[in-house]
Design a protein around this nucleic acid. Structure first.
Lengths: 347, 347
DNA sequence: CTGAAAGCGCTTACAG
DNA sequence: CTGAAAGCGCTTACAG
């Protein structure tokens, strides 16, 4: 731990023999500084190892160059891949991130977390918390809504809030239509927890794809899991009992799909001949399951990037033009990745 | 986006009819305020929706209540699980996190990222970047070392820097000794990329365990992967060629171990009878591989928590006692989780 | 128990 | 092209 004197703009100004605001002009790359003066100041800053205090700067500029990121479930792969995109893009745009994680998905802790972000004068907020139950209810309370732009990373845009998201409904349709095209006839669904919006959307995609093909989706053709592999293990066994004619299943994520493969192998059900399987998320491991798993790929890294890019665009618009930008909404369609697990009932 | 006037301590003071520093005392929970006055001020703050500006506060206090977290490889599960622990504990301690991610593991981008943290007056830094190649070389440059305490989340503590880490060497020994105890005789190793310290430590554990059992570990008994499942697929095939007597393999992570199971199944090698397998990381999915995978569990969440707790302890010690605390070093031993993939050559 | 003054390290008009 | 003054929103001694 190096012992270092805390340098200020004043120290630099004195060393060079100019006033502090001339130094300030150089820091901020303003014109109107004699090139030679600018050069001398730059050299002095370099030599002395001076770095402007961002807190002081933020205080007088009323602009912190800071974005708040609120996540939940970082230990899952989805949120962290998104966060990966967010950090990449924020670095490029010259913004620093304040990271907050909700300890649970529901609504208790939201107010202190928001307040701590507001107190730190964030220029914008990215909301990377999945919509579960009524954990979006606070959006209705205009008292709580930020005075800065906010970007929502999932569907269900509420009035006035921008959003960027991946179309989970389309993902469900894609996966199910693919199974139909491969010649499977009786397609079940192993869903995520249905208090999650994403789980409901994927299920709705499955239902509508069946309906569009003139098939019915009965209640007993689907069973609910909680995203974990162990929940999938239980769920698939129940589904096989409830729906014995089932010859294919659309599973709402790859972790549960892994358990489906596991149980199938235990029960001597051949995948894909006796049971076609598609997952969702396209984990890097899924290509190495036995058999390799077909899945729905969502580009979460890109999602994170775009959300920062658009948010920064809004922030700068407010600062430069002083006008409130219109909320925007961007949708990406996920893509089907075909592997052996769904290659059809006949081989 | 709610339109809101930016309230200051002055507005509150005027509303209540006291001076600003009385309000300040209430904000900071100082004694020496008439209980009734305190109550009136609290009510006013609540009613007006006032929140102190953390930037102004940090500026005058010279204490930002902010920690910098530098990560790399967030898209992998390890760093995000650690980050999960860090966010949890930081919230509890009342500190906010600034998150930075290195775009690559090597050293280029380090200086601007450190400077941006210093500029924001972080009270401490947590370094969650794996040691690869010489990406720790900058530790030697005391010019670059932070003036605030730093916590290193891996082995190889450099002089004066505190560290908390999980003993990867012990993990390698545990895994290998387990295979020996199960009756396997010819134990190979599929390592991670050997410019990673963790990969070298796991390998050294394998070597020493063999040696302690009176066995030799030849060069051709081990092959290097790059942590990914696809690298594992190539590596295990090469290892089987190089070391045909091999009847068990310690794989340096679960993702590569998954490929080992995949290739074994393709080649009609039975696991665990013909080939025992242990992984490392204990992914939640690993219990559902075919067969379920034995692995080494590292409690990364706890690692993250402890690092924050100890760092905050150091920060507060400096603030209160104005003494530089001694650097500390804490080691955790990982644990073996036994499953079917290593249950022995005889069934 | 409470307040007037000075300061934290910058930037923003305003002069010249 | 450069500088003196005031201000950003707090807190820290110092008085009383």
């Amino acid at each position: 731990m190096a012992k270092r004197h805390r340098l200020t703009i004043k120290d630099v100004a004195e060393a060079v023999g100019v006033s502090t605001q001339t130094v300030s002009r150089v820091i901020n790359n303003r014109p109107d500084v004699l090139p030679e003066t600018r050069q001398r100041i730059k050299e002095a800053m370099e030599r002395m190892g001076y770095h402007p205090n961002a807190l002081a700067r933020g205080l007088s500029q009323r602009h912190s160059y800071t974005l708040g990121v609120v996540t939940a479930g970082l230990k899952y792969i989805g949120p962290s891949r998104t966060l990966n995109g967010i950090t990449d893009q924020a670095e490029q745009e010259g913004y620093t991130l304040l990271l907050k994680e909700l300890p649970r998905f529901d609504t208790d802790q939201i107010i202190p977390i928001l307040n701590s972000l507001y107190a730190r004068q964030v220029d914008g907020i990215i909301w990377v918390v999945p919509e579960i139950g009524d954990n979006r209810a606070w959006f209705q309370d205009s008292q709580l809504l930020p005075a800065v732009p906010m970007m929502l990373l999932s569907k269900s845009p509420h009035s006035g809030v921008s959003s960027v998201f991946i179309d989970n409904y389309q993902g469900g349709r894609l996966a199910t239509e693919h199974l139909l095209n491969q010649g499977y006839r009786h397609i079940g669904h192993l869903s995520g927890p249905l208090d999650w919006l994403d789980a409901r959307l994927r299920k709705a995609g499955w239902q509508d794809a069946l309906q569009a093909a003139g098939k019915e989706s009965k209640e007993e053709h689907s069973v609910e899991g909680n995203w974990s592999s162990s929940s999938g293990e239980v769920a698939i066994q129940r589904l096989l009992e409830q729906y014995p004619e089932m010859d294919a299943v659309f599973v709402a994520n790859d972790q549960m799909a892994l358990s489906v493969l596991y149980i199938a192998s235990k029960m001597n059900l051949r995948v894909p001949q006796d049971l076609g399987v598609t997952g969702f998320d396209n984990l890097p491991e899924s290509a190495f399951f036995s058999p390799p798993l077909s899945s729905i790929e969502q580009d979460l890294h890109k999602l994170g990037c775009i959300s920062v890019k658009e948010l920064v665009r809004m922030v700068e618009k407010i600062r430069l033009e002083n006008t409130n930008p219109e909320p925007i909404s961007i949708v990406f369609t996920p893509e089907l990745v075909v592997r052996e697990s769904s290659s059809g009932p006949h081989r």
